[in-house]
């Protein structure tokens, strides 16, 4: 009866209460979720003694910016940052370059050997690459790529079969007329790709770039084994890992170094949030 008299009121009120509780629970969950980051940033501004003495208090008694100076200058994290940025940017550029080229011809043309090449690529998609690190290091050594920045760049850029397939699927779906118009205007093979097809594929480029960026920036094993004897070529994560071994007591320097390592990627994430999320979602939507 009551519901029939006041249908809107009753249900909306109930909904609002539920919504408030939901939001409150989510707020608490999210606070717990980001707490390790808050703790890390706070630890980076304390002295090592204060980290362990001050308990749960996140606000430092005195803001110790010198921790950052120590990490940046003495512990060489400025160098590691440059290395990481160089490796990541070069890898993303190289991956977009080669996967769009091969995706274009694989998706758009028929040619001798196409099936064989496709089969070969796909067969290795699921081979867990971490397990093949031993011969990878060996061949890189033979090519003189160990202890260079180029080595990790080439290794991290190779494969990406999924991205080749993404480009191939996209280029296959582009209507033929667009290309024909360009051909009639006298465009050659390279021009059709460069002026017509590549600009069309911007959403795929965004997806591939973001996924490659995440992978290259976060990679640990490849730069770890490539820089065993050249500490100056370490990336941020390798540098941090080594930092603990070398400076066993400098917690606050470690926290500062970790914070520094996270700032760029968090910034990139905030500016390219949509591409990040859509790039990942693409794995499910296909």
């Amino acid at each position: 009866m009551r519901q029939r008299l006041l249908p809107g009121f009753v249900s909306e009120w109930k909904w609002d209460l539920r919504r408030i509780i939901t939001v409150l629970i989510l707020l608490v969950v999210c606070l717990v979720w980001v707490y390790p980051f808050l703790w890390m940033v706070s630890a980076s501004l304390k002295t090592s003694r204060e980290i362990f003495a001050s308990g749960l208090n996140l606000v430092p008694s005195e803001w110790r910016w010198e921790n950052y100076e120590r990490a940046w200058v003495q512990a060489n994290f400025s160098r590691y940052m440059i290395n990481t940025v160089v490796i990541t940017v070069a890898t993303v550029a190289l991956v977009v370059f080669h996967t769009s080229l091969s995706g274009y011809v694989l998706g758009r043309f028929k040619f001798i050997g196409q099936r064989f090449i496709l089969g070969l690529l796909v067969a290795t998609v699921f081979v867990p690459l971490g397990y093949t690190i031993i011969p990878t290091v060996q061949i890189a050594g033979a090519l003189g790529l160990l202890n260079t920045l180029l080595g990790p760049i080439l290794v991290l850029s190779s494969g990406h079969v999924i991205h080749i397939l993404l480009f191939a699927a996209f280029f296959r779906s582009v209507p033929k007329e667009l290309e024909e118009a360009a051909v009639l205007d006298g465009a050659n093979f390279l021009q059709v790709y460069w002026r017509v097809m590549l600009p069309l594929s911007r959403p795929v480029i965004a997806t591939v770039s973001v996924l490659t960026f995440l992978q290259a920036w976060n990679n640990f094993l490849v730069p770890l084994v490539f820089t065993f004897s050249r500490p100056d070529l370490r990336t941020l994560s390798v540098g941090l890992f080594a930092f603990i071994g070398e400076n066993e007591i400098d917690w606050s320097g470690m926290a500062a170094a970790a914070t520094l390592s996270l700032i760029p990627i968090v910034l990139v994430f905030f500016f390219a949030q949509r591409q990040f999320v859509e790039g990942l979602a693409g794995a499910v939507k296909q």
Binding site: V105, F109, I117, T136, L190
Partner: peptide, 27 residues
Amino acid sequence: HDRWIYLFLAPSLLLFVLFVLYPVVSS
């Protein structure tokens, strides 16, 4: 006749053979 196609494939295949195929086979 299809030389452009193979040229376009070359960078991917080169990297693939060196750092994917060779490691898989030799492991």
